[in-house]
Nucleic acid binder design. Structure first.
Lengths: 186, 186
DNA sequence: AGCGTCATGTAATGTGTTACATGATTCG
DNA sequence: CGAATCATGTAACACATTACATGACGCT
C-alpha cells in the first residue's frame, strides 16, 4: 500500500503540477485562478486542504525555502510514493463517465501521461477517449431524432451543440494521435 | 422574498424539468442517467435531497398519483414561486466562470430560457456566452504562445483543444442566434 | 423462487465554496 | 501611509458520492 488513490480532480492536478517542479500553495492558487486550468475550481479553501491531504498520504513533501528571510514559502514536491500514485492514476483506463463528466481531467491525464510515461500512454488515453465518443455519438443522435419539433427547438440546438463538440473532440484526438505517431518513428 | 435562489446546477435542471411537465424523483433519475443530461451527476442520494430542498423552499409541490393502487408515485410540479425562482435564475447574466466551469448549465439555461421566456432571452444568453469567449480566447492564445517547446508538446496540444472547443462553441452560438433571429421576423 | 425494474429514500463520508483571519512586502 | 500583492491557512456550510435499506410488481 505504498500508493494511495487520487480522490479528486484537484488532487490529480496538484500532483502533476508539483511533479513538474516544486510549487507552493500560492503558486497553485495562481495557476488555478489565472491559467487555462481555471476549470479546477481552486480557492484557498480547496487547495490548502488538498495539499494537507496529499502530505498526510505521503504523496508530497514540503520544504521551506528562504527560511532566513522574513517571507518563507512552503514548496511541495512529489515523493517516490507520490510518483507511484500519480503514475497509477494516469494509467487508469478512461471511462465514459470520465468523458461525459470529467473531460477536463482527461486532458490533464493526457498531458501528464505524455510527460511522465511517454508517447504511448498519451496515445492510449486519446484512443480510449475517442472510442468512447464513437460509441456515445449514436446514442446522442438517436435522442436528437426523438425530440419532437414542437415549440422552439431550443433543446435540439443545445443537443446539437453537444454532438458537434464531441465530434470535434474526437477529430482533435485523432489528429494528435497521428502527429504523435509520426514523431521520429517512421 | 417569494423566490429563493437556485443553489446548484442540479436544482436548476430539476426546476426546468418539472416545469416542462410533472415528474417524479425516479423520472429525473432516469433522465440524468440515460439522456444527454448525464452531465448532471445524479444518483438517488443527490436527486431526492434536491427535491426535498426545493419542496421546503416552496418551489415545487408533490402530488401523489395512483393513490389507490399499490404503487403510488410522487409527481412534482412547479409552484408559482418556483416559476418565479426559475425565471429569475434564467435571466441572470452569464459570467466567465459560468462559461469556463459550468458550460453545461449555460446550455440548460439557454434551452429553458427559450421555452419559458421566449426567443429574445435565449438569444441574450447566447450573446453573452459568445462575448465571454471572444474576450477569453486571446488570453488562452497568449498562454499557448508562452509555453516553451521543450519536451513533448502535450500541454500545447491540450491547450489547443481548449481553444478549438471555445471557437467552435462561439461559432455554434452565433449560428443559432442567426437562425433564431430569422424566424418569422424578417 | 428469483431476477430485473419501479420507486423512494437515508447515512456516512468527503470535498468544494464562501468568508474570514493574519501578517509581511512592495509600490506609489 | 494606504492599497495591492505575497503567502498561508481555518471554519461553517452545502452539496455530491457511495453504499445501503425497503418493498411491490412482472416475468420466467
Amino acid at each position: 500500500m505504498s500508493s494511495k488513490p487520487v480522490n479528486s480532480p484537484l488532487e490529480l492536478a496538484v500532483l502533476g503540477l508539483v511533479w513538474q517542479k516544486p510549487r507552493s500553495g500560492y503558486d497553485l492558487l495562481k495557476i488555478f485562478s489565472e491559467s487555462a486550468l481555471r476549470g479546477f475550481s481552486s480557492s484557498a479553501g480547496a487547495v490548502y486542504p488538498a495539499l494537507k491531504r496529499l502530505k498526510r498520504g505521503g504523496c508530497i513533501a514540503g520544504k521551506i525555502e528562504n527560511r532566513d528571510t522574513l517571507r518563507p514559502r512552503r514548496a511541495y514536491s512529489l515523493t517516490a510514493a507520490g510518483v507511484e500514485t500519480l503514475k497509477r492514476c494516469l494509467r487508469q483506463p478512461v471511462t465514459l463517465d470520465d468523458v461525459v463528466r470529467r473531460a477536463e481531467e482527461v486532458f490533464l491525464r493526457f498531458a501528464f501521461a505524455g510527460e511522465m510515461l511517454g508517447r504511448n500512454e498519451a496515445i492510449r488515453v486519446l484512443r480510449e477517449y475517442a472510442r468512447h465518443i464513437d460509441a456515445y455519438l449514436p446514442v446522442l443522435r438517436a435522442q436528437l431524432a426523438a425530440i419532437p419539433r414542437t415549440s422552439g427547438d431550443y433543446g435540439r440546438y443545445a443537443l446539437q451543440r453537444g454532438i458537434d463538440g464531441y465530434k470535434a473532440d474526437a477529430r482533435w484526438a485523432r489528429r494528435v494521435i497521428d502527429r504523435l505517431s509520426r514523431q521520429r518513428s517512421g
